[in-house]
Nucleic acid binder design. Structure first.
Lengths: 154, 154
DNA sequence: AAAAAAGTGTAGCCTAGGCATCATATTCAT
DNA sequence: ATGAATATGATGCCTAGGCTACACTTTTTT
């Protein structure tokens, strides 16, 4: 195999561009959010497995998410690369400090989204299903608005 | 070799549960929805370009979405493959009947999502940004609940 | 202790959606 | 009307996230 001349291929622009008020900016932001979604789902699941007294081995994770263990291992590799998890072979996967923080944030956000949807009148099943995809796109600002909305409504 | 507590080694209960509205099911559904998102965005944009008197050429689309024209052409190829659009070189892209229906549905859904978010108290900018990602995950059932919510609130 | 079962990891293949680059086709302006 | 500018399409490369298949390790069972 010829060695990668791709190494110095392209320099990506600033990784934390502010969202522009243009369609292109929103579109790009949505793409960026989407690339985080999988990591968020895995982190949340690993935390949940640990919290319920279980283990977070690749196979456990794969079973819960409905993918093969090979797919789960790939995702775990990415989690490790991003500094969100560590793993010891045959002992399971563990979240780093940062991973734990992410998981906690994701879980809280998930609950809030479901709560808002049901408060609006969405049936529980649909709320749970839709929240699975929606939650990743809910910004902090929107989340705060959700919290206020629920507070006032009580 | 360090061994872990035997209790934690136990296989979790219910090893062969039938497939149900479980996390795996929701996860899979979210993945399915995601694969439609790009097509929906393109269909909506093409309709919008036509509606505002413009043309929907690959370059126009690429510019609006902030991607290269090569990327847009690939997406257009997929739209054609799915029977949602046709294209005549140098004349632009056109939606089929089905593509038009999709675009109309997507546009209505987008507006409704933004409206609900702002009604809840989300600032307009955040509502617009988050809706870009959220809308694709809003099921028909949830959409109906959104419509009812807005109606009652007036 | 050996066999069976379960878990792990690697490799190869696929598609989608990004990118840059190059060759060609069309349109526009002089 | 022709040369410049722009649009198009094809190609090749990249990463992410699916899959299957196979090899290997660990744990459990007999």
């Amino acid at each position: 195999m010829p060695s990668r001349p791709a190494a110095a291929r392209k320099r990506p622009p600033a990784p934390d561009l502010p969202a522009e008020p243009t369609q292109a900016g929103r579109f790009e932001q949505a793409r960026r959010v989407q690339s985080m979604a999988l990591l968020e789902d895995y982190a949340e699941l690993i935390a949940d497995l640990h919290a319920t007294g279980g283990e977070a081995r690749p196979t456990d994770i794969a079973r819960r998410l409905g993918v093969t263990h090979a797919t789960a291992i790939k995702a775990i590799t990415r989690l490790k690369r991003e500094g969100l998890a560590t793993a010891r072979p045959y002992r399971g996967v563990f979240l780093t400090e940062e991973g734990e923080r992410l998981a906690a944030r994701v879980k809280a956000r998930h609950l809030l989204v479901v709560e808002v949807l049901t408060a609006i009148g969405v049936p529980p099943d649909a709320a749970e299903q839709d929240a699975e995809g929606i939650e990743h796109h809910v910004s902090d600002i929107t989340l705060q608005a959700f919290a206020r909305f629920l507070k006032e409504r009580k």
